[in-house]
Design a protein around this nucleic acid. Sequence first.
RNA 1: GGGAGAGUUCCAGAGCGGUCAAAUGGGGCAGACUGUAAAUCUGUUGUCUACGACUUCGGUGGUUCGAAUCCACCCUCUCCCA
Length: 377
Amino acid sequence: MFKLLKTEGTARRGQFSCAHGGTVQTPVFMNVGTQGAIKGGVSAHDLKEIGCQIELSNTYHLHLRPGDDVVRQMGGLHKFMDWDGPILTDSGGFQVFSLAALRKIKEEGVQFASHLDGHKIFMGPEESMQIQSHLGSDVAMAFDECVENPATHEYAKASCERTLRWLERCKTEHDRLNTLPDTVNPKQMLFGINQGSIYPDLRVWHMQQIAKIDCEGFAIGGLAVGESAEVMYEIIDAVEPYMPKEKPRYLMGVGTPSNIIEGVARGVDFFDCVMPSRNGRHGKLFTWEGTVNILNEKYKTDPSPISESCQCPACRSFSKAYLRHLFKADEVLALRLAVLHNLYFYNELMAKIRTALDEGTFGDFRAKYSGVLEQRV
RNA sequence: GGGAGAGUUCCAGAGCGGUCAAAUGGGGCAGACUGUAAAUCUGUUGUCUACGACUUCGGUGGUUCGAAUCCACCCUCUCCCA
C-alpha cells in the first residue's frame, strides 16, 4: 500500500507498506541481490547496517539456481537469505533483453536457453508469476519484454502491445496464486511495467492501457539501455502525467546518482541499479565530491578514507591506500568494502533526497548535486 | 677437469635470415560498466621534434643487400659426468 506524504513540484515523498519489513520510505533505492545475495560478498545482514530498506532479486536467475521450488521448500526467499525487509522480484523481463542471443520471443512467452548449461526454459507471464509466488517476494513484477535500443517504432509497438497482453495474463495468474491455501506470501503485490522504447506516443498509449489494470504500482522499464540521459528524461516526462498519482512509480534499472535525482524530480519513487555493486567491484566508488577510481596510482599512498564525510564500514576504518592494495592483491575484502561503500552512498543519497523533500528543499538539493556527483575526483 | 644447454623488450616466454619494436601470458597504467551470462570487458605498455625517425633481443667483432635469428671469440648462468 502506498501513501503519498508530500510533493515538491513533480517530486514525491511517500511511504510504501509491505507484508515484510513494514513501511518503506520513498523515494527509495532497492539494493540489487539478483541471486539472493549482493555480489561482492554482502549479506542480508550487511544490508541492515548500510541503511537498505528493500532488496531486489531475480526470477530467472533464482528459477535456474537453486530453483524456485527449492526456495519455496526453504520457506521463501526472505527466510532463505535471512532478510526480513521487503523484497521485490524482477520478472525475467530484463533477461529477455540481456540474454537476447539465448532466447526466442513468442506470444505465449519466451523460450530461453539457460546461460548456465543451455537447457531449454520456457517463461511466459504465468510461469514468471508462479516462480515469483514460490519465492514469496513482497512485490512481483509483471513479465515484460525489455526492448533493446534502438528499436523501430513498428517493433516497439508490437512489443508493447504484447507486453500489455502479458500483463493481463500476469494479473489473472497473480490473483489466482495469491488465493491458493499454501501460497508463500498471500499479500504479494504486482507492479505493471510501461514499455514503448523511445517513442512518446507508444509510451503514453501503453501507460494509459496498463493503468486500467489493477496493479499496486507501475514501473517504467526499457530505459537506460543505450539511449541518452536526455531521451530517458523526455520519456519519463511524457509518461509521468499518465501514471496513477496514488500508486508508486518505479524507474527500472536506473541509475547513476544524477539519474536518480533527475528521476525523483520527475516523480519517480523507486529505483534499482546494478551500478553501485558492479562499479564497486570494479573499483569505481561514489562520493559526495564525485567518483573515485580507487585503482588509480595517485591513491597508492593516500592515507585518507574514500570519503571523509562517509560513515560506511570501509570509510570508518580504512585508507584509500589500503583499499587500493586489497584490489591490487585480489583480496575479496576489497570487493566487499567497495560494494558496502557504494550501497551506503546510494542509501544515504536517498535519505538526503527524502529529507530535502520533507523540508521542501529538494530543488536546492538537485541544483547542488545533480552535476557534481558524476565528476571524477 | 670433461660434456650438454641457455642468455629476448618490467617478468615469464615465443621467434631462429627480410613481412620484428618483436607472438602470448603476467605485471603496470588508463577507460568502460544503468530491472547483473560482468571479482568482467576494452585500450595501452622502448625512445622521439611521432601517418615518420631512432636505439633495442648478454658483450665484441664478422658474414650478408639485410641479423634477435648465421659464424668467431669473450662473459654469465643451468644441468650431467668426474
